[in-house]
Write a protein that binds this DNA or RNA. Sequence first.
DNA 1: GCCAACGTTGGC
DNA 2: GCCAACGTTGGC
Length: 158
Amino acid sequence: MSAKLWLFKADPKEYSIDDLANEPNQTTSWDGIRNYMARNLIRDEIKKGDKILLYHSNADPKGIVGLGKVVRSAYPDDSALDQTSAYYDPKSAKDNPIWYMVDIKLVEIFPEVIELRELKDTRGLEKMMLTQRGSRLSIQPVRESEWKIIMQLASKVK
DNA sequence: GCCAACGTTGGC
DNA sequence: GCCAACGTTGGC
């Protein structure tokens, strides 16, 4: 089975692609997902080897900033059990975890951000979840055709 | 800073 | 189980 394609959003004020670049082995656990739709994707669909577009939201410029890959499939998000964590969730329990995370590793930082504006203006990306009005899901599936177009946009600026 | 869109909560 | 109220996301 071939790798699936995803887009992971992050607010760079909280966690940016540069933070990922500075991690040991440029790898981190993608914790803190507290939305059930995103959780279902993480837990059930996202597997080791899948490829990821990394997106900066609430930023200037906002857009796709690079690529990552999944290096560990879903396992319980222990930040949900940590009372000192901002992601603590009292409904979660060690023997019955609600929330999951995957580990991701940096693949590439694009030399320039592919801005949301540009994505919205690009033919073939009209149906991409990211470009839809009011789309807030922080983990999104990406179509093969959309991935290819974005790779072309990324190579143009090199 | 505003506010539309959307998910979640909680009263009933 | 419905749905209004509320909180959050995130583009503008």
